[in-house]
Every structure is written in C-alpha cells, then in structure tokens.
Design a protein around this nucleic acid. Structure first.
Lengths: 219, 219
DNA sequence: ACTGTTACTCACCGATTGGTGACAGACCGG
DNA sequence: CCGGTCTGTCACCAATCGGTGAGTAACAGT
C-alpha cells in the first residue's frame, strides 16, 4: 500500500504501476502504524512480524527499524494510543446522571465494556495476546490497558461510594475477566463453555446473564 | 530424549553418549505425545511445531508424520486424552453429599475448577490457544474440552434441581469464563485487570470474590 | 540363512523469518 | 552549484520452518 498522497499523484498522472513513493516520513510512519494495527486486528499476533507489517504497509522493513527501532518500538507506539481507547470507544457521558447506586453503575459499565470489546477486533487480539505470551512487548500493552481501564472505572464512579464489606477490586476483576473471556471465546469459536454466541439473540442472553451476575453482588 | 528403556540400557552399560534407539514403536509414540504435551505446556503454542516436538522427543520428525500423520493428528491424539481431564484432576466425590442447594454446588465446582486450572499449565495453554486461533486443530480441542466440562457439570449436579427463572447455561458460562480468564491472566502476567495474583493471599481474595459472585446469582 | 517388513535416520528441498549493509535519489543549506 | 542529510530500495545473510524421498538397521517368518 502506498501513501495516500502517492496514490493521488499516480492516479492523477494515469500511471498504471507504482513508480516512486512520495518522500513523506510522517505519512509513512502513519502508514506503518496503520498497517500494523490492521494486521494485528485481522491476522492476530501469530503472524505478526516485521516482514508482514512492511509488506502490508507497502514499504521496506528497514524503515520500521529506522523509525521505530524494530517491532518492539512499533508495538510500543501502538500501545501509546491504547490509553485513549476507552475514551474513543465509549461515550463519556454514558453514566453519572441516572445511576443512583454502585450496582447501577457497574451494570452499565459492564454492558458498555462488553459492547465496546465486541466491536473492536484489535483490542480483542491484544487481550488474547496478553494471556498467551509474557514478553516485554505484551507487558507494556497489558499495563497500558489495565491502567486505562482502572482510570476509566474511577472516573465513571465519580463520587459514588462503593459498597462496604466487599472486595470491589477483586469482584470487578472477575466481572471484567468474564466479559473478556466471553468475547474472546465468541470471536474465536462462536461459543463459550458450550454457550453459543453468534446471533444477536445469543448476545442478549449473555447480556442479561451478565446483568444478573452484577446485580447479584452489587444489590 | 530417549525411550526410558533405552536410557536404562545406556546407563547400565556405562555409555556416555546415546548410540542407538531401542526399536519400540509404542514407546516412541508415547515419547512423542509426552514431548508434545510438555512442549505445549512449557513453551506455549507459539513455538509449537513439528521440528520442536521431534527435537524434544529425541526422534526424527518423520516419525511424527508416519505415526500421527503430522501435527494435526498429534494434536488430535492429545485432545483425545482431554476428555478425562476433569476426572483426573478433580476428586469425583468432591460434591454430592453436603451440597443442599444449587448455589452450594456451583460454589464448590467453581473453586475446584479454579484450583485445577491453576495447577495445570497444559490446560492453561490450551485455553489460551482456543481464544487466540481458530484453526481446525484448536476447534477439536475446544470441543472436546467444553464437552467434557459440560458432562462434568451434569454429573456433579446429579438430581439437584437448577433454579428457575435463571438462564443457568449463560450464567455458568460467564462464571467459568471469569475463572479461565483470571487464571490465564495470572499465569501470563501475575495480575488480572489490575488485581495482583501472585501469592496465596491474592488467590484467597480472588476465591472469596468468586464465592460472592456465585452466591449472588445462586442464592 | 535368505527375504520382506518394520522402525528409524539422514540429507535435502523451497519458503520464510529477523536482521544488516550498501546504495540511489530527493531535498535543503551553504 | 555542491555537499550533506533524509527517505526509501535492494540484495543479501544465517537460521528455521514444514515437508519429502531415499537409505539403513533391526526384527520376524519361513
């Protein structure tokens, strides 16, 4: 794939084959990051390598080494955007107004998170990556992600007091763990622990079960 | 690695270097399967290939093609044992006697499953594999596993009536999903959604949170 | 003891991987 | 205009991958 500018030039000139690439470093960098993200989202981390990214970005892998210092740096660059994921993916004003209890809040946030994760293949791959490998790359991604998630939870909680006598951190970890595994298993095989997760009806069942689970602990 | 018999012979003879391999097909087959299991458990599915298995089994990869028809057949052979996992790993009489309600049962089973999964690296890798890839191999493993799990649940339930008005299948799927992701994340990075999971104390917290979650839905 | 089968090893294939050094051309300041 | 820097390309490296065909050594039956 060429730069957008390069494509425009070629099309305008009526050229049939890509001759030269426009010398635009920042555009190339963006193309590389975009290619890496798409590749990771579509193919998964299995075949995620320098060659594959360069091939998809339509540039030489040498540039990845030069601009990002290799795959590690590129992954790090991807992880840098991860902090804004929640902000980009979930409406900020989704809660806060009609949520009277902590249970209301967590039910809402759980469903929002479920929905957001379902619709973001890149994030799904990253989560799957986190539980499959333990390299330094993945650790960075994982930390960025969980940090952003925690901040999101705190921000949404606002001044709402969490229930006493309950290990909120542990319970919430379990809740979000269930959501993540459910979505990952569904994306991979269309089911989770025997529960089919394909059409919208299946997901409605899962959503009501999730609500019930959250309501069970948080009143 | 050589056959056990071969090792014995060599040691008895005082040989320092492995000269020949005993011609024992079934022993070699067992060595291959064992090597594959250990490799998968220790290294994960990332570097799980014909060459690596053969190297660890101490035999030529050609034998894997001959005896199992390639990696697929070998994985299938591994998956065949998976049906007995619950039986091997979890005490059969663990429930049934003092469990009066469905909530008692599920609390017990959840904790048993959590414990069993924590102590089985091979099974953890397989679960991680399931949510990371969608090949035919993995599908077979996944099906065998979820089938065995479902049968186990049914068997342990016995004649205990599940609560009405609750989508038991969906709720249980979420519960087991949470356990699986918790254990996987812990094994990979020592934490899950910001919750540390390293020493026994951490796991006690997680266990009580899990109990609370289960008790919340199932009275 | 000869023969055929079984168990096993070895050498090689093309493809792909991560990684590096050398080179060509566009751009910019002098 | 010239020289240096920046951007991008290409050729090549050793290593490893999955896969195959040919060959060797041990066994069993006769």
């Amino acid at each position: 794939m060429l730069n957008e500018t390069a494509m425009a030039v070629l099309e305008q000139a009526g050229a049939t084959e890509p001759e030269k690439r426009i010398r635009d470093r920042s555009a190339t960098e963006r193309a590389i990051v975009k290619a890496a993200k798409n590749l990771l989202a579509e193919e998964g981390f299995q075949n995620f390598g320098i060659n594959a990214v360069a091939r998809r970005a339509g540039c030489d892998k040498q540039l990845i080494y030069r601009y990002y210092g290799g795959l590690n740096g590129l992954v790090e660059a991807i992880g840098a955007d991860l902090g804004n994921w929640v902000k980009d993916r979930i409406p900020e004003d989704a809660g806060g107004m009609f949520l009277l209890t902590y249970g209301d809040l967590m039910e809402r946030l759980s469903l929002l998170f479920l929905e957001a994760l379902r619709e973001d293949p890149l994030m799904r791959r990253i989560v799957a990556w986190e539980v499959s490998e333990n390299t330094e790359q993945v650790k960075r991604l994982s930390e960025a992600r969980s940090k952003a998630l925690g901040q999101w939870l705190d921000r949404m909680r606002g001044s709402l007091a969490p229930p006493k006598g309950v290990d909120v951190a542990a319970v919430n970890a379990l809740i979000f763990a269930s959501i993540q595994h459910l979505v990952l298993a569904a994306a991979a095989g269309g089911q989770c622990a025997g529960l089919a997760l394909k059409n919208g009806k299946d997901w409605e069942k899962a959503a009501t079960a999730l609500k019930r689970l959250v309501r069970g602990v948080y009143g």
